[in-house]
């Protein structure tokens, strides 16, 4: 994906979240078993079904929780590309967003 395409997709996701898309932010996967289950569910989703991906992974367009968790500190976040490198997501994101696949 070219950077301009990524930017368009990033803006599209931003609009969906700003328009009030309800996503499943809870429960946060407390351990790897739960994390793995979530990944399995994500793999079962059609890779082109953006909305389903966002909903299941619990995307928010702002930092989350008391600890203000956000993409910027997440292990899967590529800072310069502004990209989530988790293969099951593989989406352009903003540093202040968050999802429940967050890992540090």
């Amino acid at each position: 994906m070219h950077s301009d395409q990524e930017q368009k997709l990033r803006e599209k996701i931003g609009r969906m979240l700003a328009d009030g898309l309800q996503t499943q932010t809870e429960p946060f996967p407390e351990n790897d078993t739960q994390f793995g289950q979530l990944l399995t569910q994500l793999r079962d989703i059609d890779a082109k079904d953006l909305k389903a991906k966002l909903v299941l992974s619990g995307f928010t367009n702002s930092p989350y929780g008391e600890d203000r968790m956000r993409c910027q500190e997440c292990m899967y976040y590529l800072v310069h590309r502004k990209w989530c490198d988790l293969p099951e997501l593989a989406l352009p994101v903003e540093p202040d967003w968050w999802c429940r696949l967050w890992r540090i």
């Binding site: 351990n31 790897d32 968790m69 910027q72 500190e73 976040y77 800072v79 890992r103 540090i104």
Partner: peptide, 30 residues
Amino acid sequence: KTQTVMGVPKDLPKGVDKKGYIALTGAAKN
């Protein structure tokens, strides 16, 4: 698979505590 508790690795690099690890991550990412 790195084992985590609430998104933080269960086993951190030798001698590093959770607080230090989180602080280091933020600085390193920046």
